[in-house]
């Protein structure tokens, strides 16, 4: 199966299962989770099912085109299902069958992997899915995004397209993959990898990246204050990528990393809350769509229940924050960490 047939198959498969096939976002991002179709749509009570390819950049993973398995730029196939269907594992396994991966031929396993995106303030529980020891998918039940509790909970499936195709084609190098008949992945992307790796590790102007980070952060704050959540989210994505380049360039120490991550996270939190406010003002338009029309009463109940839980969560968070503050000033209560 050609590389392009893998994502075409997955698109068809999920489109046939009531997913919107949406498109990649037009900013650099480290993973499909950062696409608003996942990060923002996962929030709030509205149902949502989407599938898309996301070109993803991880500057630190660049290997000058010399490593057969590592890429600074690669593709993910992302599926978000909200609420998570009860048969979501079966659906996923069917998608593998559609790709020709037979679980009686290959050893498929769901191995614990708690997923967390510190920069997005998101976490979830789930697995990495192994096929003969190769991780081919990240399977996560989101529990929180942007610091906000998921309600309902979504299932996120992230397929590693290159890995799956390598698995299917039995190739040892990503560059040998057949993208389409007669065209290899290497012919399309090898040169990019060489150049991007060189840039991320050797060339990128550190001062410019630090400056831009500060600027994008400030701009994001302004955008939030002006009620432009989407624009603020774009700033968040830019900061995230600038941070990744600085990280690859070795310009941020282990100690400092945490602080930069927190700065991006704060932006993501603000965006998430602001986006959710907006959806609420719009009365959650997607609650009634696509054969998922709920009775008015149920819809209202759902909304109230959601908002009640939301309020409770906020209260709890405020209480925890107050408690943490109080504990911070009372050093005798500090517990030495292991």
């Amino acid at each position: 199966m050609n590389f392009q047939d893998v994502f075409l198959t997955l698109q068809r498969f999920w489109a046939d299962r009531e997913c919107l096939v949406v498109q990649p976002y037009d900013l650099e991002m480290g993973a499909g989770t950062f696409n608003p179709a996942t990060f923002l749509r996962s929030l709030g009570p509205e149902p949502w099912r989407a599938a898309y390819v996301e070109p993803s950049r991880r500057p630190t993973d660049g290997r000058y085109g010399e490593n057969p398995n590592r890429l600074g730029h690669y593709y993910q196939f992302q599926v978000l299902l909200k609420p998570s269907p009860d048969n979501v594992q079966e659906l996923y396994l069917d998608s593998l069958r559609a790709l020709g991966i037979d679980p009686l031929v290959h050893d498929l396993r769901f191995v614990e992997d708690d997923w967390e995106s510190p920069t997005l303030g998101a976490w979830g529980l789930g697995w990495e899915v192994w096929a003969d020891g190769m991780e081919i998918t990240q399977f996560t039940y989101f529990q929180q995004a942007g610091g906000i509790e998921m309600d309902p909970v979504c299932a996120e499936l992230t397929y590693g397209l290159e890995r799956i195709t390598m698995f299917l084609q039995g190739t040892d190098s990503v560059y040998d993959l057949q993208w389409a008949p007669g065209v290899t992945y290497g012919q399309i992307h090898h040169q990019d990898e060489v150049e991007r790796s060189k840039y991320s590790f050797e060339v990128a102007d550190i001062d410019m990246h630090f400056t831009q980070f500060d600027q994008c952060e400030a701009e994001g704050r302004r955008a939030i204050e002006a009620g432009c959540a989407m624009a603020a989210y774009d700033c968040t994505l830019r900061c995230s990528h600038l941070f990744n380049v600085l990280d690859a360039r070795g310009a941020i120490s282990v100690t400092e990393r945490q602080r930069f991550i927190l700065r991006v996270r704060e932006m993501a939190f603000a965006v998430a809350n602001s986006y959710l406010d907006l959806r609420r003002t719009l009365n959650y338009p997607l609650l009634g769509e696509e054969g998922k029309v709920r009775a008015d009463a149920e819809r209202a109940a759902l909304k109230t229940a959601f908002e009640k839980r939301q309020k409770k969560a906020l209260k709890k968070a405020a209480k925890a924050a107050a408690k943490a503050k109080k504990q911070g000033s009372d050093s005798s209560k500090e517990v030495p960490d292991a």
């Binding site: 398995n69 290959h106 096929a131 020891g133 040892d172």
Partner: peptide, 28 residues
Amino acid sequence: LGTQVRDLDVAVRGNQRVLAARLADARF
């Protein structure tokens, strides 16, 4: 392995390929 797959060699070869990739990375 968690499944008694039809041909063990297929699964072994898959696992070898994964490890080889990791070790290639480490050697790099």
